[in-house]
């Protein structure tokens, strides 16, 4: 289930989210570039994501929003 959403057109490929992620599942997509010419960040393995939002906290450009599943009541 997807828990992180990246507004790729806003990403500047700075990599602060990559080093912030405790699960090491955020990377810059070397295969593509956005309109500004940056490799944009993305989550490589949604299942491992624990929705800690460390990536979003370190993002200077408000690229990332994070959700988590509502636990069954």
């Amino acid at each position: 289930m997807k828990k992180t959403f990246f507004k790729s057109d806003r990403c500047k490929g700075c990599g602060l989210c990559v080093t912030a992620c405790p699960k090491h599942i955020v990377e810059l997509d070397k295969k593509t570039i956005n309109a500004k010419g940056y490799h944009t960040a993305y989550c490589v393995d949604d299942d491992k994501c624990i929705s800690c939002a460390f990536c979003a906290i370190m993002c200077p450009d408000a690229v990332i929003t994070v959700v988590k599943e509502e636990k069954g009541k």
Partner: peptide, 13 residues
Amino acid sequence: IASHYCPGCTHGI
């Protein structure tokens, strides 16, 4: 609005 700051500049934070 997309900021003009350089990549990784912590002004954004």
